[in-house]
Each structure stands twice: as structure tokens, then as C-alpha cells.
Simulated scan of single mutants.
Amino acid sequence: MALATASGSAYSAPKTVLVLGDSLSAEYGLARGTGWVALADEKLRSQKIEATIVNASVSGETTSGGRSRLPALLEKYKPALVVIELGANDGLRGLPVAAAEANLLAMSSAARKADARVLLIGMRMPPNYGRDYAERFYAMYGTLAKQIQAPLVPFMLEGVADKPELFQPDRLHPLASAHPVILANIWPTLQKSIRAK
């Protein structure tokens, strides 16, 4: 997805939406243009919503990696909205929840200082990671969203995670056929966030 060149006054220029995510947003194992971010970009155009999506997602990204990359991305794209879809790789590696939360908070603060709004996308860990860890990990997103007063999509894989047939052979990454469901989970909050003044 190319960043549209703004023409005319800044007022009429399309808003830029920066998606900072991991493999779930980076189309890992999928044909280009079939992931939820590309589908969201298509939907924006079809609904004539003045916004352009920049997908800065990287497979394997952790909250620490996102935190280190975000300042340069904010400087380059000057987004109106930053969608943060990170944390799954922290959880899969069993990294401390407090560290992930601190990184997400730092990213949110950096976005705000750059005059961008924030949308958080939450994740759940599989039950085999231990109930206590899984519950603390999931609760982290809700706690942070309240703290920074940002909208939250509680679980992007709602309606997907419990259906093995919707996953690639690694059982971690959804098939292209699952991404319309993922977008359906994200779209209402994303659309409202883009339209917000």
C-alpha cells in the first residue's frame, strides 16, 4: 500500500493510518493484498473515507522492536492514527507482561506526542501458556486502554482462534480466508477512530 501524495491544502489531504504490527498484520504466509490491513485499505476506498493506510508491520516483531521503530515511522509518515497490534510474540516467548505493557505505553505516548491518536488491538495467549500468565496478558490491553483513554479491539482473532481449519499448518498464522473475519473484528473501531476529529 503506497502512501498517497497529499495535494492541495493540508485540510483536504487524506489522513494517514500507521499500522504497527507483527506477522498477523504483515501477511505472513499469505499472498500480498489478502491480509486484514490490505482489506481495510480497500474498504476505506470503497466507502470513500479519506485515509491511507501504511502497513509497517514486521513478522516476528515484539513490543520492544515496535517501540524502537516507531519514532522514525512517526517522523516519516506523520500519521493521524497509529494502530498498535503487538504483544503476541512477547507472549509466545513468555516475556514479562510488565515489560510488554511498558513498551505499549511508551509507543502510545510517542504517538500522542506526535499528535496521533492510538488504537490498540488486543491478543490472547493459548491456554497452554498457563492460566495466570494468559489472564494477565489479556488484561494488560484493557488496563492500558483505560489508562491512555484509547479505543481497544479486545481480541483480533475472535471467531478465528477456535477454528483450526482457518490456520496455516503452523497453527499460529491464519489463512487468507480468516482475514475478512479479523477485519470484521477490527473495522467498527478502526472506522470510528479514523473519523474522529
Rank of each mutant, 00 (worst) to 15 (best):
A2W: 09
A2D: 13
L3S: 08
A4Y: 11
A4R: 11
S7L: 15
S9T: 10
S9F: 11
Y11T: 08
Y11V: 15
S12P: 01
S12V: 15
S12T: 15
S12Q: 06
P14A: 04
L18M: 03
Y28S: 12
Y28R: 15
T34P: 15
G35H: 01
W36A: 09
L39H: 12
E42C: 04
K43A: 14
K43G: 02
I49W: 11
E50S: 12
I53F: 03
I53H: 07
A56S: 09
S57Q: 12
V58A: 05
S59T: 11
S59V: 02
G60D: 09
T62R: 13
S64G: 08
G65W: 03
G66F: 02
L70N: 03
P71G: 06
A72L: 02
L73G: 00
K76R: 10
P79H: 00
V82G: 00
V83K: 08
E85N: 12
L86Q: 07
A88D: 08
L92R: 11
R93W: 03
G94F: 07
G94H: 02
V97S: 00
A106V: 00
M107N: 05
A110P: 01
A111R: 06
R112P: 06
R112N: 13
A114E: 05
A114C: 04
D115V: 09
L119T: 12
I121R: 05
I121F: 05
P126W: 10
G130C: 06
G130I: 05
A134R: 03
Y138D: 12
M140S: 12
Y141H: 03
T143F: 11
L144I: 02
Q149P: 05
L157P: 10
G159L: 06
K163P: 08
P164R: 11
L166T: 13
Q168A: 14
D170L: 11
R171Y: 13
R171S: 15
L172A: 13
L172D: 01
H173Q: 12
P174A: 04
A176L: 08
A178E: 13
A178V: 07
A178R: 09
P180K: 01
V181W: 00
V181Y: 04
L183Q: 08
I186F: 01
I186Y: 01
P188F: 09
T189V: 11
T189P: 00
K192F: 04
K192R: 14
I194C: 04
I194R: 08
A196I: 10
